[in-house]
Nucleic acid binder design. Structure first.
Lengths: 182, 182
DNA sequence: AGCCAAACGAGACGGTCCGTCTCGTTTCGT
DNA sequence: ACGAAACGAGACGGACCGTCTCGTTTGGCT
């Protein structure tokens, strides 16, 4: 669809612009100018600034890890705590917080972005956690994964209250009890 | 700040426009025109179409109920199931789904909308649930309320999978077990 | 009743970004 | 070497933006 070199320049442009002026400062015209690309070239592949940013973020995350990795030391409780701590760290990192919120916001209105996020980010993550739970003998692993992540997203997205140091341990404790593993 | 009659006309305008063309069709100019108001009048009180819509929705919900009411029949399990069913029904109602998503999206970028939602909608709801849990003798009622609502929002917001008929009962079952009430 | 300041309706204004459209150029497969 | 596909550039009309004046209405105060 699009030339690899073009994609690379556009990705670099959207990431640098987002880092400089936040998501609110992203426009198709701005991205095109920074990338040295025509607007038509952008519209040929992406439908909105959020779609461009999402694509760049996904490519970046794939470069880094290749696959979604869930800790698996044999100690389920410890693994889940590590996981929750990592999630909280990423969600609250000022560098990524705004970008993730922007993608989440766009996900609410643009169905294409929604299914892209689900297919390439959230889905694999949920499946990986569910697999980890299933391997430990949990009965409803999908529901367990949702029970683990739901409250984290809830607190972060809706800004109900800050995360505390001791909450993840207590939360994992409750989740394990919920799935009959305490 | 603003005259009551003006507020009423603006609220009616934003609700009718949102019902007709969805949230995407909301603009300050459009709302002002429909309400027969000057743009300056809108900007004097609200900062964005989302803020206007939120204000209208909040006023509407206050008119209807006056206070946040949580079922309290003495049967905790039944009450929570009623609550979850009601939430799912409201979240998935086509008439409100898009509006709630729009407000949630705006909540990610506009801090003013965020604290407004928290103060007048989410906060009271969470507190009411936590109170209900506390009355039943649950130890960490705030965490319990979060455990109950988090997965519901998670599934709805991120569109991971549809709600099924039997999920609420199983979910409440797990939450009660998590807070040592099963 | 009469007054005055605050709130208002209307809309002009320059500006930004939208999404579409040409046009001439570059790139790449064969 | 050639033809098609992808591209860079930017013109274009249009929608909204947020700010700004204006002259008018409204409601409280005396």
């Amino acid at each position: 669809m699009a030339r690899a070199s073009t994609r690379a320049r556009v990705h670099a442009a959207v990431l640098s612009l987002a880092a400089e002026s936040g998501f609110g400062g992203l426009t198709m015209e701005g991205i095109a100018a920074r990338a040295g690309a025509g607007k038509q070239t952008l519209y040929r592949t992406w439908s909105s600034p959020a779609a461009v940013l999402l694509d760049a973020l996904l490519e970046q995350s794939l470069d880094a890890s290749g696959e979604v990795a869930i800790p698996d030391t044999g100690d389920l409780r410890a693994d889940l705590e590590t996981l929750v701590h990592g999630m909280i760290a990423e969600l609250t990192d000022p560098a990524t917080d705004r970008l993730l919120r922007a993608v989440t916001a766009e996900l609410q209105t643009d169905p294409a972005v929604g299914s892209e996020v689900l297919d390439r980010l959230l889905g694999p993550q949920l499946r990986a956690i569910a697999d980890r739970l299933a391997r430990a003998g949990v009965e409803c692993p999908e529901d367990g994964a949702e029970l683990l992540l739901g409250p984290v997203f809830h607190r972060w997205l809706l800004r109900t209250r800050p995360f505390t140091e001791d909450w993840p341990a207590a939360h994992v404790e409750r989740v394990l009890r919920a799935v009959s593993f305490g």
